[in-house]
Every structure is written in structure tokens, then in C-alpha cells.
Computed example of a mutant assay.
Amino acid sequence: MLFGKVKFYKINKDFPIDEQSLTNSLSKYLFQKIDRTQISTQGFVNPFSQYADKPVYGMSGAFMVCLREDSKPIPASAIKRKTNFRVRDLEKKKGEKATKEEKDDIKEQVTSEMVSQFPLDFVKTKHVNAIIFPKNNLLAIDTTSSKDCELIMAMLRTAIGTLPVIEFEADSMPTMVMTEWLRDSSSVPDSLELGHECQLKDESDEKGAVVACKNQELASDEIEAHLDAGKVVSMVAVEWNDSLRFKIKDDLTIVGVSYTDFLKERLKDDSGEGKAPEKFDAELAIAVENLRMLAPNILEMFS
């Protein structure tokens, strides 16, 4: 499904952009196939077809984009091993230690050779999806990897010229808020219903114990005992707004997103004959509608 995990960013300045201007900007940075001299290449592709044609998919005032990265996963250990072998060979011939400049030159040569000889059939491909909500000053990225978030945001900044964003930050400590949800059911927001999974951790030291609970009634003596022992909640499963089920983490990212029966039926109805384009449109409509409402609701939960 689209956006099975989400990291939200707030666009902290007015961001007036329309589909055509965004398309024009991103079209200058479409994905190009990697060649033998490149270790990696990135570019925008069509979010539906994942080919490098129209790079923006508009839906209800929001714009979905997709960044593709192809890379050659050459192990650093392999480069180091081959470099060391050549350095030792050079030192034998010279009868003295190789200089730093000589070592750097050898490493550069080895890397270039390994990149050019890398089998293209083994190139690693990665797609990173994002939805821009200009009127809501919101960016949602379909990953919890900070590295992947920075990758697509850097490319967007290059293409657009600016992307003034900041990560979501809670007014209250998320671990404390979620812990209170388990201690006192009346503190759970009206939009949420607790699930049967959580993660508890001991914050008394950096190597504190972590307890993962699955298929567990959260309002139980067992969970209460862990909380009384000083553990706090770092992740909890919830159902939100009778629409989505997911797990909230203490950095305000959400993972393990799935539809409730209500949304499953809606997706089935909206997908028509079940053809790929219709299904994609139906899924994207659900993602846009729910993420637009969920983002401010999450900030409200932890205010």
C-alpha cells in the first residue's frame, strides 16, 4: 500500500507552488539510467509508472513525487582490501612506505575500476515517495529513514530552489504522553483506540531494558508492572479515526499502517474494475485525505 510508514515535516514558510510549476522544476532532474562510470544516480520518476516521464501526480491540491536512486553496492571492505594489496606491492617495489597521496591515488584508482566493472544486473534500485501539501504547509515522506528523507528533500531543494522544512516536534515528551495513555484510559484522545502492541523501555541508562509486547491487552497487570518499574512507552499500536491502524513511535513517525475494514471497502468500491490506474488513484486519494488530517492531529495529541 501507499505510505505504509510516514515521517512528517512542517513547511515553515508559505510555499506557493502549483502542479505545473512543480512539474517544470522536477522535469529538469528526471532519472537517468546509471552508467559504468557512476557509483550512483538519482532522479525523479512518475509515482505511478516509476518511469522517467511526468514526475508529479496531483490529487486534491496535493502533489505526490517519487525519487529513484540506482546505486552499486560495492562493499567498503572490498575496496580497502584491494587498496591495501596494491599499497603493499608498491612499497615492496619502492623499498619504503607509501605516502598518503600515493595511498589516496591507489584507492581512487581501485574504486574507479570496481565501479566500472560492477555488473549492471546487480545495481540496487530504491524509490522514495513523498506528498507535498502546499496549502497545509506539510510534507509527508513514505519512509522512516532519515537518510532517505534527506535524499529526496535535497533533490527537491535542488529542483525547486528551496524547501524550508523542519521535523515534527512535540510540545510534550511523546514517551510520557503514551505512557499516560496506558496508565489512564481516559487520557487517550477521542480519535484513538489503543491496539494490542507496544514497546516499553527503561530510560534510566543508555543500555536500558526494552520490552516488546504483541497480542497483549495493554490495560493489564503485566503492563502496569512494567510501568511501575519505571519503564516508559516508546511505541504503541492504535486505530485512528476508524480509518487507519498504525504504530506511533516516540519520534512521532508512524509505521505499520493498514486500513480498517471501512477503508478496505471504500478502496474496493473506488477501484472500479480493479485495474492498476484506478487502484492507484483510489489509494492515493485515501492517503492524501487521511495524511492531511492525521498530521495536525498527531501534533495535537502531544501538545
Rank of each mutant, 00 (worst) to 15 (best):
V6Q: 03
P75L: 07
D242W: 15
R88D: 15
V257Y: 11
K7S: 09
F15T: 01
I132Y: 03
V238M: 01
G230C: 00
K135N: 14
C149W: 10
D105C: 13
M114V: 09
Y9R: 03
K72Y: 02
I132L: 15
Q199G: 08
S49V: 10
E278S: 14
L284R: 10
I11Y: 13
K201V: 02
L192G: 02
I286W: 08
A212I: 08
E169N: 01
V128E: 02
M176F: 05
K10N: 10
S172A: 12
P75E: 02
K135P: 00
R68I: 00
R183I: 03
Q42M: 10
S271P: 11
T253G: 08
D14I: 00
V233G: 03
Y259K: 07
I166T: 13
M114L: 15
G58R: 03
Q42V: 05
E113V: 09
R86K: 13
G95V: 05
V177Y: 09
S271G: 00
I106L: 14
Y57K: 00
D184M: 04
M301R: 02
D228W: 06
F85I: 11
N129P: 08
I166M: 13
A276E: 14
G230S: 06
N241M: 13
S71A: 10
G43E: 04
D202V: 02
Q117D: 15
E180V: 00
A287N: 04
E169V: 12
S303K: 07
L138H: 04
K214A: 05
F31C: 03
D142L: 03
A219G: 07
D148V: 04
Q42D: 12
D171E: 12
M293Y: 12
D53W: 05
A229K: 05
P75Y: 13
P134G: 01
P73E: 11
V233F: 11
L26W: 13
T179A: 00
S116E: 13
D242F: 07
E180Q: 15
M173S: 10
T83C: 08
F118V: 06
Y29P: 01
I74C: 07
R183P: 00
K279L: 11
G208H: 04
L291K: 13
